[in-house]
């Protein structure tokens, strides 16, 4: 479509302004993490660190319990992804491929589940998990996360399955494949990019989560980094430089994974939510 010169300039101005708005806080945190504390606590704000130092990173990594906290988060996220990929891929395949009575209700059900207040779920979850011994465990937390991440995964994955023509499985069936064989050997290899993107999205969601982790973990054995970092801020008056360095370290995996799969993840999210 033809756009006038004025429109293009306007589009650039708006786009760049938003890029600045979105990125500046993160860039500022990065700059802060490289500064000495005396250069942070000052009203005469200097834009660049002088001299730049990695001192804050060394301090937060060696003098706080950030490493075990991040390890707990990694294990919890991994378990969440494993459960969602296992149960969610099958369910998404079912609602994408087969036509049966109640299929639309099933889809609506997975959408409605996302609307249940987290607070209404987390209070009883605390009691239930305490009764069955899953409170303050990483697997218990991962199971709780599937409650709100699995429905999103199913909706996103359905979009990727929908994009694969079903003639492929029909051809496989004619060649003597079972339905299971057609799904595992024909369709799954074709959606592996989408599957990876959905898995990353779920992983980021679990890695970032704060509220459930705050309620359902009570000790260092299962506490995740958002809870631990916030605890350091509140109780130990963590210096700003160390906090900024800790923040940068914790979002590093998110940034890397997001950069890796952003295109297909965005497509899946848009498809899942738009059709919903």
């Amino acid at each position: 479509m033809h756009r006038s010169r004025g429109e293009k300039i306007l589009a650039y101005v708006i786009a760049l302004a938003f890029a600045f708005f979105a990125a500046f806080p993160v860039v500022w945190t990065f700059i802060t993490s490289l500064k000495q504390e005396k250069d942070i606590i000052t009203r005469s704000i200097r834009l660049l660190p002088d001299p730049a130092t990695l001192h804050n990173y060394v301090a937060i990594w060696t003098q706080s319990n950030l490493p075990p906290l991040m390890w707990n988060s990694a294990v919890t996220s991994f378990l969440t992804v494993l459960i969602c990929v296992g149960a969610g891929t099958l369910a998404a395949y079912s609602v994408s491929r087969y036509r049966y009575a109640g299929r639309n209700h099933m889809l609506l059900f997975f959408l409605l589940v996302r609307m249940f207040p987290l607070v209404l779920m987390v209070i009883p979850l605390f009691i239930i998990m305490r009764n069955i011994g899953l409170l303050d465990t990483r697997i218990g937390l991962a199971l709780a996360y599937t409650g709100f991440l699995l429905p999103i995964f199913i909706w996103m994955m359905k979009g990727f399955f929908d994009a694969i023509p079903s003639e492929l499985e029909e051809a496989a069936r004619i060649d003597g494949c079972t339905r299971l064989g057609g799904m595992v050997r024909v369709v799954l290899p074709l959606v592996k990019g989408g599957l990876f993107a959905c898995a990353v999205f779920i992983g980021i969601g679990a890695w970032n989560e704060y509220l459930f982790a705050l309620m359902l973990t009570t000790s260092g054995g299962s506490r995740t980094w958002p809870v631990g970092l916030q605890l350091m801020v509140g109780e130990f008056q963590l210096p700003w430089g160390a906090l900024a360095a800790g923040g940068m370290l914790s979002i590093l995996p998110v940034l890397v994974l997001f950069a890796l799969v952003q295109r297909s993840m965005v497509r899946g999210l848009a498809a899942g939510a738009v059709k919903g």
């Binding site: 979105a22 993160v26 980021i204 970032n208 916030q230």
Partner: peptide, 12 residues
């Protein structure tokens, strides 16, 4: 870049 904030943890 514009999408970035949405993927950041609330704590950060």
């Amino acid at each position: 870049i514009v999408l970035l904030p949405w993927f950041l943890p609330v704590v950060v």
